[in-house]
Design a protein around this nucleic acid. Structure first.
Lengths: 138, 138
DNA sequence: ATACACCCCGTACCATGGTACAGGGTCAAC
DNA sequence: GTTGACCCTGTACCATGGTACGGGGTGTAT
């Protein structure tokens, strides 16, 4: 059992990164992670990848899609990258989030309006104006 | 050209409802719309369906998934349905929306925090603390 | 030297909401 | 009676983020 540093099997990497083996293979297919060469029958992963997977997961929590995460990862590798390159993406994402919040608030308002259409909860639905409100709202 | 009322071909229905023919077929597959029997070589749709499709589209705008819209449509058909049945779903949806808004606001806050990590936009990314912030933020 | 956990690869499948064909058939106008 | 626009069915495909599985190969501990 010589478990060299920087020689994680995919299973060890998965455990260490708290994702499934399948997820790692999925990231490989999506080219977020480079698949290492086979050494004998198995492929071995550097421990660096634990941090990388953490970055991927954190980026997802921040609202980035995997496609966008891929771009972020590419930025972190390129020598020419400026801080600005990340900031631009961050600001764009904030704008997108603001848009989504606006959408959700609009929906919420309409739904709240709907609820007011109903006079009595136990009324048969066919007699209640709520369905008309549904259609007419906005 | 005898275009009887209540005898829309799928194409006419699509045009009248402002969706594509494929979308109507998709709704049929998902059982939101009942596929009419064939009369000769074609199927003919009642004009009622224009309103129904409008309802589907409006429900989607309000944040309901097609699965949920299907349930709503089933409610509107059942004799026993009460107004309450719709209100419950509306209130549940409002709660879900509130949760999503909360999530988005959390993301936004983290992203805004990130932006503050950077001292100078033109700094090479490798020298900038922004990536560490990315990882460490919350 | 053999068991057994683990790895490899390919492929199919899940939900969500559609879109896009191909290869036929039909209706209706002219 | 033929053209042309429309319809029919089935199936595959798109993005998104994975999950699942079968059938085989391998590394290592005992």
């Amino acid at each position: 059992m010589k478990e060299k540093i920087d020689r994680l099997t995919i299973g060890k990497l998965a455990t260490a990164s708290n994702v499934s083996v399948e997820t790692i293979r999925f990231y490989e297919r999506k080219e977020l992670i480079k698949q290492p060469e086979k050494q004998g029958g198995f492929r071995y992963y550097p421990t660096d990848l634990i941090k990388k997977i953490w970055f991927i997961k954190r980026s997802q929590e921040l609202g980035f899609t995997l496609k966008e995460v891929k771009e972020l990862l590419e930025l972190t590798v390129k020598k020419k990258s400026r801080c600005n390159d990340i900031l631009i993406r961050t600001e764009t994402k904030i704008d997108e989030i603001n848009e989504k919040i606006k959408d959700l608030k609009r929906m919420k308002k309409s739904l709240e309006g709907l609820a007011k259409c109903c006079d009595s909860r136990e009324m048969p639905l066919s007699d209640c104006p709520v369905l008309d409100c549904f259609i007419d709202s906005k």
